[in-house]
Amino acid sequence: MNTQSDLDWLPESGVQIRKAGVQFDAVRLDGDRGRQIADLLARMTGGDPGPIIETASGRRCVYFLVPPGSTAHLAWPEGVTRMTCGPDKEWFIPVPALDDMTWPLFWRYRPTAPDRFVHTLLLRAVTLHSEE
Rank of each mutant, 00 (worst) to 15 (best):
Ala97Asp: 02
Asp99Ala: 12
Ala75Gly: 08
Thr3Phe: 06
Arg60Thr: 08
Pro114Lys: 05
Arg18Pro: 00
Leu123Phe: 06
Arg35Asp: 14
Leu40Asn: 06
Trp103Asn: 07
Thr71Cys: 12
Asp88Leu: 11
Gly79Trp: 06
Thr71Ala: 15
Thr120Val: 14
Ser13Gln: 14
Gln16Ser: 12
Thr3Pro: 00
Asp8Pro: 10
His119Pro: 00
Pro94His: 10
Glu78Gly: 14
Cys61Trp: 01
Gly34Lys: 12
Lys19Tyr: 05
Trp107Glu: 09
Ile17Trp: 12
Arg82Trp: 02
Met44Gly: 04
Glu12Lys: 12
Gly50Met: 00
Arg60Cys: 09
Trp107Ser: 08
Lys89Pro: 00
Val118Ala: 03
Met44His: 14
Val126Pro: 01
Arg124Ser: 03
Pro49Asp: 01
Phe117Leu: 01
Arg60Leu: 11
Leu65Trp: 00
Arg124Cys: 04
Leu65Ala: 02
Arg35Pro: 04
Val126Thr: 09
Arg110Gly: 03
Gly69Asn: 05
Pro11Ile: 05
Leu7Thr: 01
Met1Tyr: 00
Leu41Tyr: 12
Asn2Lys: 15
Asn2Thr: 15
Ala38Ile: 05
Pro111Val: 03
Lys89Ile: 13
Pro77Ala: 03
Thr84Asp: 15
Asp6Pro: 04
Leu98Met: 14
Lys19His: 11
Ala125Lys: 15
Tyr109Ile: 07
Ala97Ile: 03
Gly79Ile: 13
Pro94Trp: 09
Val118Trp: 02
Ile17Phe: 10
Pro114Ile: 08
Glu54Leu: 05
Trp9Met: 07
Trp103Ser: 14
Arg82His: 03
Leu65Gln: 03
Gln23Glu: 13
Thr127Asp: 05
Gly58Leu: 06
Glu132Gln: 13
His129Gly: 03
Asp25Cys: 05
Thr45Tyr: 00
Asp32Gln: 15
Arg110Ser: 07
Asp100Phe: 10
Gly58Val: 04
Ala26Ile: 08
Met44Gln: 15
Leu65Asp: 05
Ser5Gly: 04
Asp88Gln: 10
Asp99Arg: 09
Ser130Lys: 05
Pro104Val: 14
Pro49Phe: 05
Pro114Trp: 08
Arg18Phe: 02
Arg35Ile: 13
Gly50Ser: 03
Pro51His: 08
Val22Ala: 09
Leu65Phe: 01
Asn2Cys: 06
Ile37Gly: 07
Leu105Pro: 01
Asp6Arg: 05
Gly34Val: 09
Phe64Met: 11
Met83Ile: 09
Cys61Glu: 13
Arg82Leu: 13
Thr127Glu: 07
Gly31Met: 15
Asp39Asn: 12
Asp115Val: 00
Gln4Ala: 12
Asp25Val: 11
Pro51Val: 04
His129Tyr: 06
Asn2Ile: 13
Asp6Phe: 02
Ala113Arg: 06
Gly14Gln: 08
Leu10Gly: 01
Pro67His: 05
Arg116Cys: 00
Trp76Arg: 12
Met44Lys: 15
Ala38Tyr: 11
Asp25Arg: 06
Gly86Ser: 14
Glu90Ala: 14
Gly58Glu: 06
Asp115Ile: 00
Gly50Glu: 02
Ser5Glu: 13
Gln4Glu: 02
Ile93Cys: 00
Arg59His: 09
Ile52Asp: 01
Phe24Tyr: 15
Leu41Pro: 10
Gly58Pro: 14
Asn2Tyr: 10
Glu131Phe: 00
Trp107Val: 09
Thr3Ile: 02
Asp32Ala: 15
Gly31Ile: 15
Asp25His: 06
Thr112Ile: 03
Val22Tyr: 11
Leu10Ala: 02
Pro51Trp: 05
Thr102Ile: 07
Pro111Arg: 04
Glu132Trp: 08
Cys61Thr: 09
